[in-house]
Amino acid sequence: MIELENVAYSYGGGELLSDISLKLAAGSFHFLTGPSGAGKTTLMKLCYGALSPTSGTLRLFDKDVHTLDRDEIAQIRRRVGVVHQDCQFLDHLPVKENIALPLHVSDRSNEAETGDIDDLMHWVGLTDRAAALPPELSGGERQRAALARAVIMSPDVVLADEPTGNVDWDMSQRLLRLLIELNRMGKTVLVATHDLSLIRATKSQVQARVLRIANRRIQLAGADL
């Protein structure tokens, strides 16, 4: 799905990530952890083509990102669902339309009329909030709406960057359960979080691998978690 080979990324003032080699296989579940500023978000952005590596090879769905034009990047985003810590919406459209947005932009508007979206809204527990505007949602509701929007296209990969950053423990657990369900349905999931207790609480439910970014490099964390 997503392959990084000796990837490095620098923001101009020195390298943030060096020599990263990583392969996200289909159906895998990965946690990405590390201190703030270590480059978790940068790595996530590399994975959905928002950034291009400054060196090394990055393949998204077997295509080298350096060879992709802007429209091909857009096509890839339809196969990668992204949830940010501070997820953004179109604030003037109700939640339901925001969740259906990926369908509209990819010319599949007619699917927004079917019952699938209602099932999805029910799955994330937002059925009652369908007509609300995004600014009216609580932190947890925003995260769940973002998750629903990320998966409505039935993507192959779900990337979640600190999805539990703004929500309480119960809501974190609930979001994680949704991500685990997605993984059981065959999606590749990568969750960036600095919250180790969340990782521990999840390990019993899913075969997850934990990646740690330290000193600009990525390493597979051991069983010490």
């Binding site: 802007r70 857009a74 096509q75 932009v105 296209m153």
Partner: peptide, 9 residues
């Protein structure tokens, strides 16, 4: 937001 959800230019 539109770019994130896969809208073309």
């Amino acid at each position: 937001v539109l770019r994130l959800v896969g809208a073309t230019d």
